[in-house]
Design a protein around this nucleic acid. Structure first.
Lengths: 193, 193
DNA sequence: CCAATAAAAGCACGATCGTTCGTACCGTTG
DNA sequence: CAACGGTACGAACGATCGTGCTTTTATTGG
């Protein structure tokens, strides 16, 4: 069989852990509780990873892959440059709203959770975020060769975080409209569009 | 004596908890570990609060007060409007850098930690953040009566979050310069200056 | 200085944590 | 049929968690 039994259970575990982590964060993952929700024993679940940190790494990897699949990959259908950036933005906001995961964007939680906690988790997230900034900057370069892509990525990232905070903590119904207006201002300032 | 012994130890506890929470978050606070760092017994410490949640509330309250004292209060010396906003920004970034607390801004951690976890903690933070947005918006109104103060506050908040992420996770040495450039762009777009 | 009160300690509780171990059951392979 | 690696189990480990009690120690007001 191409798919062994173990790999599918492993996926079920990571899937459940991903939901949980989007709500409570990576550190709050508990093996016992996780085992209960997937319906197996603590030790059986544990054997799939060998340590809690390895489980967290698997979950972090899964959330990054899912972001790529859900947000970025469909956007690549749009032509390079301005069109892609404009296609990216609403999709990214949708991702924040969390139709995919119950607790919204787990990456943002991970950023805040890991930013001053050294270790393999932080390293993996750091690498991923660096690549993400480069991805955005490359698109900016396609849209406007004069523009500072890293600066754009910096501000765009802040925009999305502000959207998340405004939406989820403050519950502002105008959050999306605010984000869109800010995005329009950003495009204008960088002469993109 | 005006200051009882209990109130001063309580302050010592909250102070230590504040440092810890700035590193690990409010939920990661542990009474046992906290008691050890303050040099007293678990039960002795516990008696000051009666529950972990009450301790967390005290810590949250302390961090919000400290933000007010460290960031906002000195800024009020500047004249209302544009001058205040310009004075606020670098001071806010300094606060993010965390010369005051070891782990940088604990409020941002709290926002991400509590944004989808209902309860008194979230309520207190929600109220505080709402007041903060209003404070900024009021200042914008003083600087530029035509401007949408809530929109400005939204974007300014995102800027600061982007700065924190860029500085602490990515370790970008140009983070401050990026934030300043973005702030200049924000002021320009709102015709403040 | 003494009694009242506040603060802290001591001890124990049930629960849960991550982890280890030995042991079954399974399908595959020789 | 025998041996095997992969998968999952139950039990148990020491540690730590938040939270009650009861008792001792420190501080305070009269």
């Amino acid at each position: 069989m191409a798919i062994s039994k173990g790999s599918t259970t492993r996926e079920r575990i990571v899937e459940a852990a991903l939901s949980r982590a989007s709500l409570e964060g990576l550190n709050a993952l508990s093996i016992g509780e996780l085992a209960q929700t997937v319906g197996m024993s603590k030790s059986g679940l544990f054997a799939h990873f060998g340590s809690k940190e390895a489980l967290q790494l698997a979950v972090l990897d899964a959330m990054l892959r899912r972001f790529g699949d859900t947000v970025w990959r469909p956007v690549k259908a749009a032509p390079r440059g301005a069109a892609r950036l404009k296609a990216l933005f609403p999709r990214w906001l949708d991702w924040i709203d969390g139709e995919e995961l119950p607790g919204g964007c787990p990456i943002q939680s991970a950023v805040v959770e890991l930013d001053d906690r050294p270790g393999p988790l932080r390293d993996a997230l750091h690498a991923s975020q660096t690549r993400w900034v480069e991805t955005i900057a490359r698109e900016v370069a396609n849209a406007q060769p004069e523009g500072d892509g890293d600066q754009f990525a910096f501000e765009l990232n802040g925009l999305v975080m502000a959207y998340a905070a405004s939406r989820k903590l403050l519950g502002d119904p105008r959050a999306r409209e605010r984000a869109e207006r800010a995005f329009a201002g950003l495009l204008a300032r960088f002469a993109i569009g």
